[in-house]
Structure formats: C-alpha cells, structure tokens
C-alpha cells in the first residue's frame, strides 16, 4: 500500500498547479465571455435581471461576467487536478497493490 513515510508527491501543491488551474480556465472564460456577451447585453441584465444587477453598467457587467466564468472554470480545473492526483492507480499515485 502507498502508506510509506514519504509524503505523497502527487498531493503536494506545486507552483505550476496554479498555472494549470488558472490558464485553461482563463482561455475557457475568454471563449465563454465572447459567446455569452454576443447574445446578452449586460445592460439587459441590469434592466430585466434580478435586483442584484441593479446599478450595473456595461463595463462592470463585462468584467464581472468574465471573472465569473473564470472562477467557475478555475473551480472545475481544481477539482479535475485534485481527482487526477488523488486517484489510486491512475494519475500519479501508486497502482493498487504496489508496495
């Protein structure tokens, strides 16, 4: 079993992990923002959306929308990395029974 004293290298957070999370989600957020805002005018969200959006101007709408997509993407990337890294036998952990 993978219960040796050495720390699981796969679970260590490395500097590059931040890039691996932030970069793909950034690209996805760019694509999502273009598609979404081509169809939806942020001013429309202000005028017709829930009260939350009152007082939102277009520039703020674009920026917050982009940050929202980026955040969602980053969350998904984080979970993916976590699942791959902690998968037993796959990813980079030991295969079952290897000791």
């Amino acid at each position: 079993m993978a219960t040796s004293a050495s720390p699981e290298p796969a679970r260590r957070i490395r500097a590059i992990d931040f890039a691996l999370v932030l970069w793909p989600s950034f690209l996805a957020a760019c694509a999502a923002s273009v598609l979404f805002f081509a169809a939806v005018d942020p001013a429309m969200l202000r005028d017709a959306g829930p009260h939350l959006f009152a007082g939102l101007d277009r520039e703020a709408g674009y920026a917050l929308g982009f940050l929202f997509f980026w955040g969602v993407g980053a969350l998904a990337s984080t979970v993916s990395i976590y699942l791959i890294r902690t998968e037993r036998g796959g990813g980079r952990a030991d295969p079952p029974g290897a000791a």
Binding site: P9, A10, R14, A15, R92, A98, A99
Partner: peptide
Amino acid sequence: MSVARLKSVPPPEAGDGPFYVA
C-alpha cells in the same frame, strides 16, 4: 516499493513533476 514504484512513474515529462518550476 522500489521497482514497482519506479516503474509506475509515467513518462519523463510528468516524472520530473516536483521540479517543474524549480
């Protein structure tokens, strides 16, 4: 561990993981 562990290390580009940024 040893042999099995070494063998389970995937291709080199992932193998030098901990050294990525260093």
